[in-house]
Design a protein around this nucleic acid. Structure first.
Length: 733
DNA sequence: TGCCCATGCAATATT
DNA sequence: ATATTGCATGGGCAG
């Protein structure tokens, strides 16, 4: 690892958070209402008068901070300087507020679940702690662990999304509660009643807005729009703006009353500076404010629903997957699900809050990787392990036609796909042979975020979808679907069936999953640890889930998830300057479950013959060739040798000089490696993934020869073996 | 039956 | 003595 080169995660993108609601007795639709009010021209009186302490806090740090149990909204570009302030560590805390007990409790839980965890993440967490001492003590080992890991869940009681302990950070660093004074109305009157309540509320609300608009000062407008008006003009303008904003907000409330509670809104906190800045970047003036309000509301809605989905899933999952939210890296949170649409002519058009680049094409120019971000492989779900030619059609070996980007040599037995229900992996290929991933309803957790933002959909569609999803009815339907599919998929162990299933996955499902995955990945803390649940007992009837990690949201190099899967199934890397940028560079080549002989002191890894011959350079001589393998997680380049041994009448392909790589990644038997190639640069990338069971890290020990060539997973064996049914890598011949 | 590949082990190199 | 290299063996699986 390039420890020295690894850059600290910038504490950006914390402009928009939602508080956890612990901040006292603020009432009503605090945050958003306050936002609307502020945007509508209400002046700093609100902030200054009632919350001097906040004011002081604002002085401390110009960065706007939203604390939330919502994922943090990446920083406004215009706020980068302030948001980069050292005094904005809150995000880390906010994300790290996962339940510290999740790991421990989950390990003791009878439920089957998987943890994806990264050693590196732990390191990262420690580093973060070091960087932000105020967080010390917050990170108990377990907490850190869970924070850094991608865990699947735990019961609601430790719902990490709640971010309960995020508040202390807020208290420490200050924030501007957007709705401290919101005595506008009683939220309950809206959320516990029908539409008429909203209707009734409207006048009052508007009145409030208007009144406050009158009270707002010219300064506010000047700050917001940089426009100087006469007093009368200001008043008129503000009044109207206030009306507009009120209407916007009201409409939003009406359409989301069922999905967003007053509590949710109350948690939204946006620093005034952020609003002002954003408004300026949006062009200033009432329209800018209006636009900003919409964006914020959308964000609130989306994130709330994500959270809700998570909770629902946790509540209903047979496996009781816990929320993987705890993410010590705030930048990862929204990486894959930026909800704010790009607005032309606005600071939002530049996706500062859109995923940062996940993959840096040119390592020379790439920022150093985040410390602690170990390679983590998304098994079949690996976005770059998609598109297998093998399964792109009914002919498993028929090359894909639609997604040339990701030709792959998928060697995962379908059973793995089915089991890889953790579904944190976006699939970048519509050809998926990754059935489970394509079938959200197959697993409860697969469909955790069915209403995620889907790139390419317009806002209305998104909103409509989001809104409807939260209804009880929709929930029931989802659960019913999940129940219907779950048994089916659990029984899917034969790869032929699964391949077929995979092949039949619809694009729609794919996209949805992709986004779902994205969220999961974003919320999860990427790492290269994969914990297997103790399958004995609890899993007797349910094959253990193959833990898979989302590669696409993995913080490779410096910034995670700077990319987005678009409907075509291609990965689009996001260019900071020019927006979307088709940049799918990685092609999955092969993966290999490490055997004892691979991780021993021989320093060599036997590669699957077929994949090696298919996807690696043809070897003329037995000495093979030197091959530089860039560790995806660390960007470190390992000089390995790819060669073969004559073996009977055939060849045995080896990757040599792997000892350091294996040690650096702490790989053991049962772990696995994945090799990619960069289609543009032609370079090779490798990443190691750890697979562990809680409490039995060296569990991977298996009788040597007796378990060779596991092409399928035997639930029974899994249940009795207690070890990971490692089906994986064996070549599908 | 043939192929794949995990690994045993002898030969060789290095400390 | 230990580590590394390279070949051979043989279990498991697919056809």
């Amino acid at each position: 690892m390039k420890g020295g080169q690894q850059q600290q995660q910038e504490m950006l993108g914390e402009d928009l958070h939602a508080g956890d609601g612990n901040e006292g007795n603020r009432s009503g639709f605090g945050g958003v209402v306050e936002v609307a009010r502020l945007m509508g021209g209400e002046e700093r009186d609100i902030w200054l008068d009632s919350r001097q302490q906040d004011d002081e806090l604002l002085d401390v740090d110009g960065a706007s901070i939203f604390y939330a149990d919502f994922p943090p909204l990446p920083d406004f570009p215009c706020m980068s300087s302030s948001s980069s302030s050292s005094s904005t560590p809150a995000p880390v805390k906010a994300i790290a507020c996962s339940s510290s007990a999740s790991t421990a409790s989950s390990s003791s839980s009878a439920a089957s679940w998987a943890i994806l965890k990264s050693d590196a993440d732990e390191d990262m967490g420690r580093k973060n702690n070091g960087q932000h001492p105020q967080q010390h003590g917050q990170h108990e080992p377990a907490a850190l662990s869970s924070t850094a890991s991608m865990e699947i869940p735990q019961p609601p009681d430790q719902n990490v999304m709640d971010g309960v302990d995020c508040m202390d950070v807020m208290e420490t660093f200050g924030y501007m509660d957007l709705l401290d004074n919101n005595d506008f109305f009683d939220p309950s009157s809206i959320f516990h009643h029908d539409d008429t309540c909203l209707e009734e509320f409207q006048p009052d609300h508007q009145q409030q807005q208007q009144q406050q608009g009158h009270e707002s000062t010219q300064q506010q407008l000047e700050q917001g729009g940089g426009i100087i008006h006469s007093q009368n003009q200001d008043q008129t303008q503000e009044h109207k703006a206030s009306d507009d904003l009120a209407m916007v907000f009201l409409e939003w409330l009406k359409s989301n009353k069922e999905t967003v509670s007053a509590e949710d809104l109350r948690r939204v906190k946006i620093k005034k500076a952020t609003i002002e800045c954003a408004a300026r970047r949006l062009g200033g003036g009432k329209e800018a404010m209006k636009q900003l309000l919409k964006l914020i509301l959308e964000w609130v809605q989306t994130n709330h629903l994500q959270k809700r989905r998570f909770k629902e899933s946790a509540d209903n999952l047979p496996y009781q997957y816990s929320s993987p939210n705890p993410n010590p890296n705030p930048n990862q949170n929204l990486n894959c699900n930026s909800i704010l649409p790009s607005e032309p002519n606005s600071c939002f058009s530049q996706p500062a809050w859109i995923p940062q680049p996940t993959y840096v094409t040119d390592p020379a120019t790439a920022a150093p990787p985040l410390p602690g971000f170990q390679p983590l492989v998304g098994y079949m779900s690996d976005p770059f392990a998609n598109g297998a030619p093998n399964v792109s059609s009914h002919n498993p070996y028929q090359p894909p036609t639609d997604f040339q980007m990701l030709e792959s040599a998928q060697t995962w037995p379908p059973s793995q796909f089915a089991l890889a229900s953790y579904n944190s992996f976006p699939v970048l290929d519509n050809n998926l042979h990754q059935a489970p991933l394509q079938q959200p309803s197959a697993f409860p957790y697969v469909n955790q975020y069915p209403y995620q933002y889907v790139p390419g959909h317009n806002n209305d569609q998104r909103l409509a979808r989001l809104g409807s999803s939260a209804t009880k009815e929709a929930r029931k339907k989802r659960m019913a679907r999940q129940r219907r599919f779950a048994p089916h998929n659990r029984n899917h162990s034969h790869h032929n069936n699964q391949q077929t299933q995979l092949q039949n996955q619809s694009v729609d499902q794919h996209e949805r999953l992709v986004n779902d995955n994205c969220l999961a990945a974003a919320q999860a803390n990427p790492g290269n640890w994969v914990y297997w649940p103790s399958v004995a007992g609890a899993l007797a009837s349910n094959p253990p889930v193959l833990p898979v990690m989302p590669l696409w949201c993995t913080p490779w190099n410096d910034r995670p998830c700077k990319g987005r899967l678009i409907s075509s199934g291609k990965w689009h890397q996001i260019d900071d300057k020019s927006g979307w940028k088709p940049e799918k560079n990685l092609r999955f080549l092969l993966q290999k479950v490490l055997k004892q002989s691979d991780v021993g002191n021989l320093g060599r890894i036997v590669l699957p013959k077929k994949e090696a011959e298919t996807h690696l350079p043809e070897l003329e001589a037995r000495d093979g060739i030197s091959i530089a393998m860039e560790d995806i997680g660390t960007s470190r380049v390992w000089n390995m040798r790819y060669r073969f041994w004559p073996n009977n009448k055939s060849r045995m392909y080896l990757l040599e000089n792997t000892g350091d790589f294996v040690r650096a990644n702490g790989l053991q038997e049962g772990d696995f490696i994945v090799i990619y190639s960069d289609v543009k640069c032609g370079k090779y990338l490798i990443r190691g993934v750890k697979v562990r069971q809680p409490g039995t890290k060296s569990e991977a020990k298996r009788p040597g020869k007796s378990q060779k060539n596991q092409h399928t997973i035997s639930p029974a064996s899994a249940a009795t073996n207690g070890s990971m049914p490692m089906p994986i890598t064996q070549t599908v011949r």
